[in-house]
Amino acid sequence: MIRPTISRRWIYVWQRNLGVWRKLAIPSVLGNLADPMIGLLGLGYGLGAMLPAVAGGPYVAFLAAGMVASSTMYSASFEAMYSAFSRLQHQKTWEAILNAPLTIDDVILGELIWAGSKAMLSGTAMLGVAAALGLVASPMAMGALPVVVLLGLTFAAIGLVWTALATGYDFFMYYFTLVMTPMGFLSGVFFPVERLPEALQLLAYTLPLYHGVALIRPLLAGQVPTQIVLHGLVLVLYIVIGFCLSLHLARRRIMR
């Protein structure tokens, strides 16, 4: 693969997306928050009332950590897929940018950081909700913020790979229903991974969301996570591989 030709002009791509987002910020934030909040309140308090302590605490606190991770994942994925694809295909925003002194590499990096930023906002907002509901044990929960950043970039990078391959919006449905939904169940968002059959537990260890949850949950409970370096490295690896692959595929699609 040829060396990336990235300039600091990627930031203009990020700024352009921020400019559009600012016009629609309130409905966008509400939309991003409403879905995980309804899940947290409904499942956490409703279902949780019938459950004994999960992992040594109330179920709603257990679920809150999972929801911080999964809302980060969904936010990054939506932005890197549906929104980025509409800029690539329908609005031809990328085409306009590529007529200026930017390269496709600048565009992909700008989109990656942008989707990561939006995901960070969602994850942080969920964290705030969890804190407001008294589901966070100590200020150590602030340690979840860098994890949210990594997790957002991870799913942004994976999403851009799919965007570079997509033929239409329907294409993303496969990823959402066949990859992300099962990933939520396998990664310990709703119940402890130890409840899974051993083979599925092994599968869970390969999933980026699992490693995000494994870091965020203890931090919200006021504990230092185990194997921080390992979990962090898996996420970084997903980001690097996903970014390189999306660069390669986007170049092949656009610069042909």
Binding site: Y12, Q15, R16, G19, K23, A96, P101, L102
Partner: peptide, 25 residues
């Protein structure tokens, strides 16, 4: 000037110029 307009539909006339000029530094 591309064959098909690829202006930013979410921006006003002026914002389109402000955003595009920024790409040139």
């Amino acid at each position: 000037v591309p064959q098909f307009d690829n202006l930013d539909p979410d921006f006003t006339v002026e914002e389109n110029l402000l955003v595009y000029g920024r790409y040139f530094g």
